[in-house]
């Protein structure tokens, strides 16, 4: 953060009431003018705004049931204690009540009647920054670390190995030919090991789904019976994070 001046350049400094009036859109023109000319008071106003935003970042949806639990509630799958807790929570939580309504409507096919409000317009650059952050935790395209596969020995079999990487994970893919079919094994290496346990692996030849598998406790998987040497691999974790290897090509 830039270092702000420590005193008002147009004393007296704006009062708390005057700064709050700005936030309420009820400030006099003289106050607005003061803010334009005084970096110190402008910084104090920003600090007020950041205080509220900080509390929101800290508290947002804390204490709410997960969306999945709301779904289980809608389906009547919860035990009596959890169901009762959700009912109490819904009485005061508008946000959860809204989400529950969306789930109930979808489960009973009433979705067509509702429309979502438009998102408010955000400042320039906001969408780009948000997009980068979302990409950071959500979907990552893995880059191949070498242009062509390397040969590795696996017992008596000769395997070809491809390594792809995102900023946070590495994916090792190994292919072994078994007659006219191919066995693909793989592993996701990440500091966040648990996050990738039980992730879904989809292997496509072109647009056709060739195989699926789930990562085990070591984040490894095996797919048998593949027919092509080039494939797209998508790995989706239970929290929605996704690694995509768009074009894994083996030589043989």
């Amino acid at each position: 953060m830039a270092i702000e001046p420590v005193t008002c350049s147009r004393p007296p400094a704006l009062t708390e009431d005057e700064l709050e009036a700005v936030l309420l859109g009820a400030a006099d023109a003289s106050v607005e003018e003061h803010l334009v000319q005084c970096p110190y008071c402008a910084a104090r106003l920003k600090a007020l705004q950041r205080f509220e935003r900080t509390l929101q970042v800290r508290l947002a949806r804390q204490g709410c049931p997960s969306v999945s639990t709301l779904g289980d509630y809608a389906l009547g799958l919860l035990d009596a204690g959890t169901q009762s807790w959700i009912e109490d929570h819904l009485e005061s939580c508008v946000s959860c009540a809204r989400e529950l309504r969306v789930i109930q409507d979808a489960l009973s096919d009433r979705t067509a009647a509702r429309t979502e409000r438009q998102r408010p317009r955000q400042p320039d650059g906001f969408a780009d920054k948000l997009g980068r952050l979302v990409n950071d935790w959500q979907r990552r395209v893995a880059a191949l670390l070498a242009p062509s596969p390397r040969v590795a020995l696996r017992g008596s079999d000769q395997a070809e190995r491809i390594v792809a990487a995102t900023a946070r994970e590495r994916v090792i893919l190994e292919s072994v030919l078994q007659g006219d079919r191919r066995r693909l094994t793989g592993q996701v290496l990440s500091e966040d090991v648990v996050a990738w346990n039980s992730a879904l692996v989809e292997v496509y030849h072109g647009d056709d789904l060739a195989a699926t598998a789930f990562l085990d406790d070591l984040n490894e998987f095996v797919c048998d019976g593949l027919t092509a040497s080039s494939m797209r691999v998508m790995i989706t974790a239970v929290d929605g994070r996704q690694i995509v290897i768009p074009d894994a090509r083996f030589d043989s």
Partner: peptide, 26 residues
């Protein structure tokens, strides 16, 4: 179907939290 709907709603929750962080700017 529940899993499909909740995948979107969970994403939107996370998106909203990320928006707040971006708005905070630090």
């Amino acid at each position: 179907k529940k899993c499909a709907v909740t995948a979107i709603l969970q994403y939107i929750r996370k998106l909203r939290a990320t928006e707040l962080e971006v708005e905070l700017g630090e």
